[in-house]
């Protein structure tokens, strides 16, 4: 992975471009473009948060959505009980999922490969089932919070913007620090990393907790923007979409989540509008072709041209 440690160029550039473009809706103040850009930023944030665990350590996580949902419910539940500004509860949207991740992370992360993936596949559903059996959370109906605060599109947009920037900086940091290199070593060969003195357990757990906290915050912000927390947050389809975006873009990189989220968001959207009946058939075919043509993710296309990649890479 020597070429991965080149000075950061194109990845950072890509994000700076996106952050620049994402300021435009704020300046024009158009709620239309803000709502559209918000959904994109949310997708990007989810992909970046999943990248922390799945991208860096290679643990394919189908249960990311559990933390996203828990974050949403944490904010909504506290808002409905206290009736004060839901943004105050965003820290809880990080703390509660992080605590759960810490509690279950140790045994869970001792499972590897596809077994980890399958176990986490059940996690989101299990949390969902627990929540819909709890009266305080209104069973299957969820917690609408529109009545408790005044929704403001600016606040919601700025909050998501800050979240994405923070996740970008975290990823950047991981790409540049020894800790990030440890996680990458786990991805490449966990046993080897362990034998070389990496405390893999601690490293994995930290990444898992961090990623859970990030997912929780995104969930909390989404609940505020949707003015509603409901069992639909634990949607395995969303988890698979986020995972697909990450893998299509290229995991463990900086550029990968950006590329993946853009493709998933814009292509899926364009197909949805053009082909109301066939969009998923076509999208399925597109995903298959991408995996066959670019198995390490689209951002790795750069490495096909070593001369260029050495100058501009760290994707």
């Amino acid at each position: 992975m020597a070429q991965n440690r080149q000075p950061l160029k194109i990845g950072v550039l890509g994000y700076l471009l996106v952050f620049g473009l994402a300021v435009v809706p704020l300046l024009t103040g158009s709620p239309a473009s803000m709502a559209y850009a918000w959904s994109f930023l949310q997708m990007l944030a989810l992909v970046l948060s999943l990248n922390l665990i799945t991208g860096f350590t290679g643990y394919v996580n189908f249960g990311h959505i559990a933390f996203y949902g828990v974050g949403a419910y944490a904010v909504a539940y506290l808002t409905t009980t206290t009736r004060i500004d839901p943004y105050l509860f965003i820290p809880f949207a990080a703390i509660v999922p992080a605590a759960i991740a810490y509690a279950i992370g140790r045994p869970l992360l001792s499972i590897r490969g596809p077994y980890f993936a399958i176990t986490t596949l059940g996690l989101g559903e299990a949390v969902r089932v627990i929540i819909v059996n709890i009266p305080q959370f209104n069973y299957s109906e969820g917690l609408p919070i529109a009545a408790y605060f005044r929704y403001n599109v600016f606040n919601s947009y700025i909050a998501m913007y800050i979240t994405v920037v923070a996740l970008f900086l975290t990823t950047l940091l991981l790409r540049r620090t020894r800790y990030g290199a440890m996680l990458e070593a786990i991805r490449e060969d966990e046993d080897l990393a362990e034998s070389m003195g990496v405390n893999t357990r601690k490293a994995k757990l930290a990444a898992y907790v961090l990623s859970a906290a990030a997912a929780g915050v995104i969930g909390g912000l989404t609940a505020i923007t949707h003015v509603y927390a409901h069992p639909g947050f634990f949607s395995i389809n969303l988890n698979v979409s986020v995972l697909a975006s990450l893998l299509m873009g290229g995991g463990g990189t900086l550029l990968g989540p950006l590329v993946g989220a853009s493709i998933f968001y814009f292509i899926a959207d364009a197909l949805l509008i053009r082909f109301p009946y066939l969009h998923l058939v076509i999208f399925g075919a597109v995903v298959m072709m991408i995996t066959l043509a670019m198995p390490r993710g689209l951002s790795f296309i750069l490495y096909r041209y070593p001369k260029i990649s050495q100058r501009i890479a760290d994707v």
């Binding site: 709620p31 709502a35 559209y36």
Partner: peptide, 20 residues
Amino acid sequence: YDDKSNKDEVIRLYEKLINE
């Protein structure tokens, strides 16, 4: 638009219908 019977899509699409 097709919401695929999915809440996330509904939210995105209603934002889109109203704003865009």
